[in-house]
């Protein structure tokens, strides 16, 4: 039943559930789309717990208020009082990446059909989110400052012969931002899940081999447990990093030094 061949990439395959790819229709409902909706539903149900709006909050309400308060203070600290306008997008990016990463690490796979699909392991998803963040930076920057926005790359109080190459480097690093922003959460999930798959397979193969293989199995079991814990941590950190960098980039565009 289980092939001995390790295929750690299989978990990233997108399979159609309704429709087929040959039709080229955007409405093809895939396992990726299903898990986007599951993540969406989880976020919605979680946020509903904060809508009781009680003066003395229960545990759930405190958790939801903690999440919104966390993003609110982060946006406020990086952008300033004007940050309130940009909070919805930072919040959207943070909760979507966070819940996708965490849902992808849940052990639903004990039921074979319910194996979670990590939405953020697709660079189409993280890339689009990074492009949205970058587009906000560009639109806000040019809308607020016009062509003066280019002074973002010019280091102040530096002699001309130094400022010219520095501003070129600054400009290049600015152009790289959407790629680094989008690749970072994707790579973290991609690499972590491959590692889990590989060591999970080692457990099975070790048990099959018997003898010394059982010792390797036990070792790999603890290693997988450790990697799982690390995945949860990395999932939260990547969501935080994405949200923090987005608000810092927006801060650049809003405040221009």
């Amino acid at each position: 039943m289980v092939s001995a061949k390790i295929d750690p990439m299989h978990q990233f395959m997108i399979q159609p559930i309704v429709g087929n790819f040959a039709s080229g229709s955007p409405f093809v409902f895939t396992n990726s789309a299903l898990w986007m909706l599951i993540v969406l539903g989880t976020i919605y149900v979680f946020m509903l717990g904060g809508m009781k709006r009680a003066l003395i909050p229960g545990r759930w309400q405190v958790a939801v208020e903690g999440l919104t308060g966390f993003i609110n203070s982060m946006v406020h600290a990086s952008i300033g009082p004007e940050g309130r306008k940009y909070m919805p997008w930072v919040f959207t990016a943070f909760v979507f990446i966070l819940f996708s990463n965490l849902m992808g690490a849940m052990p639903f796979g004990v039921v074979e059909q319910a194996h979670p699909f990590t939405v953020t392991s697709q660079f189409t998803v993280t890339g689009v989110m990074a492009l949205i963040s970058f587009a906000i930076v560009l639109v806000v920057g040019f809308y607020k400052h016009g062509l003066h926005f280019f002074s973002l790359f010019w280091p102040k109080g530096t002699p001309f012969f130094l400022a010219l190459p520095i501003s070129l480097i600054e400009f290049l690093s600015f152009l790289i931002r959407p790629f680094s922003l989008g690749l970072r959460p994707f790579i973290a999930m991609f690499a972590g899940h491959i590692l889990l798959e590989v060591f999970g397979n080692f457990i099975v193969q070790g048990l099959r081999a018997g003898g010394g293989g059982i010792a390797i199995s036990i070792l790999c079991f603890f290693f997988v447990a450790f990697i799982n814990a690390l995945e949860l941590l990395v999932g939260a950190i990547q969501a935080y990093v994405f949200a923090l960098l987005t608000s810092l980039y927006i801060s650049d565009a809003v405040n221009l030094h």
């Binding site: 093809v28 976020i43 919805p88 697709q122 189409t124 989110m129």
Partner: peptide, 20 residues
């Protein structure tokens, strides 16, 4: 998968952004 991914991502992010 690109168009399908973009479509469903737009729905997901749009819902989170506008409703939540």
């Amino acid at each position: 998968v690109l168009v399908s991914q973009l479509f469903w991502l737009a729905i997901g992010l749009g819902f989170i952004f506008f409703v939540i």
